[in-house]
């Protein structure tokens, strides 16, 4: 474990917590893409499927973190699609998720480290996570604005994989560890946030709200 991965995971936890708090406190999921949250839930379930296959005692933090990610993302989807369904902005959350899921699944079958079920599910999860934020970014471009708290959520969510890139550089240099598929997907994922990062740093940090077109 290195500082980059530690802060990456903390940033990811923070993002999940910020979104849950926003929805719970405001009792509204306005401005939040339910599709992105569904895609994240699918990512966690397919990536941590080993938790279900052979139950292991929660002896280390990694198992606990995996369970937190899965339960928090499923609970977030429950809040969006059931509890606060009336506030879900379905009209603007209109990006076709199938256009993300099918290519990710196809690519996972073509480009993977090992052609076995668990590995293909993991690869699918990595590819899907790289593009899972697109419905959320699409929704913001349709509504033309993002609530400040949602911007903080996006910043934490984007920073998590950016920090993982530093972690991969660190591990390549000191542990000669390489996970090409995760690295390529992680770079693509972080690039998708660049536009938002620019808006966040030039606007939200100064207390302004993000309004598109910038």
């Amino acid at each position: 474990m290195n500082i980059f991965r530690l802060f990456g995971d903390l940033s990811h936890l923070a993002a999940i917590a910020i979104l849950l708090l926003k929805i719970w406190k405001t009792r509204s999921c306005a401005g939040v893409s339910g599709k992105t949250q569904l895609l994240f839930a699918v990512c966690f379930i397919t990536r941590y499927i080993d938790l279900f296959l052979h139950f292991v005692s929660l002896y280390n933090t990694e198992k606990v973190m995996k369970l937190i990610y899965i339960s928090a993302s499923v609970f977030t989807c429950y809040l969006i699609f059931f509890k606060f369904k009336a506030t879900y902005d379905g009209n603007h959350d209109s990006m076709r998720a199938e256009f993300l899921i099918v290519p990710a699944a196809g690519l996972a079958c073509l480009i993977n480290t090992k052609f076995d079920a668990i590995e293909i599910l993991w690869t699918f999860s990595i590819y899907l996570e790289a593009v899972a934020i697109l419905p959320q970014l699409f929704l913001i471009s349709k509504t033309g604005e993002a609530e400040t708290i949602t911007s903080h959520y996006l910043f934490a969510q984007g920073s998590y994989r950016a920090l993982y890139i530093l972690n991969w550089i660190y591990r390549y240099h000191y542990e000669s560890h390489v996970d090409t598929i995760a690295i390529v997907a992680g770079v693509v994922q972080t690039i998708l946030y660049c536009d938002f990062f620019y808006l966040y740093i030039t606007k939200v940090v100064k207390g302004q709200k993000i309004v598109l077109p910038a």
């Binding site: 990610y69 390489v178 996970d179 995760a182």
Partner: peptide, 10 residues
């Protein structure tokens, strides 16, 4: 550096 098959990250 070999591409490792064991994914030890979240």
């Amino acid at each position: 550096a070999s591409d490792n098959a064991v994914h030890d990250e979240l």
